[in-house]
Simulated assay, not measured.
Amino acid sequence: MSEQTKGFLATNWFKLFIVFFSVVLLLIYFHRESKLDDCVEQARLAYDYDWNFQCKEAKKEANCSLARFNADHIEAARAKRAAECVQRYSFK
């Protein structure tokens, strides 16, 4: 049987499989990248909330200057959240 008498799928099934598999891998990659970006953004929003909450507790305006201990504690919590995001969603 010649190549012309076979159907398109029968002739090119392996090439189509490779293309399909590549597309699936790209979709997985971009989905995880999107989840990582969302998680890091949530960590940043939690940081902003924590900072402004401490300002409010000190009876100051939002985005105030905090004592070094409070600022370091809030920054450490943000870094921990961001590291958890990277651990959860990165491919490393």
Rank of each mutant, 00 (worst) to 15 (best):
A58P: 00
K80N: 08
K80C: 01
K60G: 08
R81P: 03
C39I: 05
L45E: 15
C64S: 10
Q87C: 01
R88V: 01
H73L: 09
A46M: 07
K80L: 09
K56Y: 02
A67Q: 10
C39A: 13
Q42D: 10
V86Q: 12
Y89R: 02
D50H: 07
E75V: 01
D72Q: 14
Y49C: 00
K56D: 03
R78C: 01
R81N: 06
V86D: 12
A43V: 04
K60F: 06
V86L: 09
R44W: 00
Y49T: 11
N70M: 05
R44D: 07
A79Y: 04
A76L: 11
V40A: 10
D72A: 14
E41C: 00
A62L: 09
S65N: 13
L45S: 10
R81G: 03
Y49W: 07
V40Q: 09
W51H: 08
Q42C: 02
Y49D: 11
A62K: 14
Y47R: 09
N63P: 14
C39K: 03
A76D: 14
C39Y: 02
S65V: 13
E57W: 00
A67F: 04
I74R: 02
Q54M: 13
A76T: 14
V86N: 08
A79F: 03
Y89W: 10
A67Y: 06
D48K: 02
Y89L: 01
Q87H: 05
A82C: 00
K60M: 14
K80V: 06
K80H: 07
A46Y: 05
A58G: 08
K59A: 15
D50N: 11
V40W: 02
R44P: 03
V40I: 15
A77Q: 13
Y47S: 06
C85F: 03
E84N: 09
C85G: 04
Q42S: 14
A77S: 13
A77H: 08
R78A: 04
N63C: 01
R88Q: 12
R44F: 04
R81M: 04
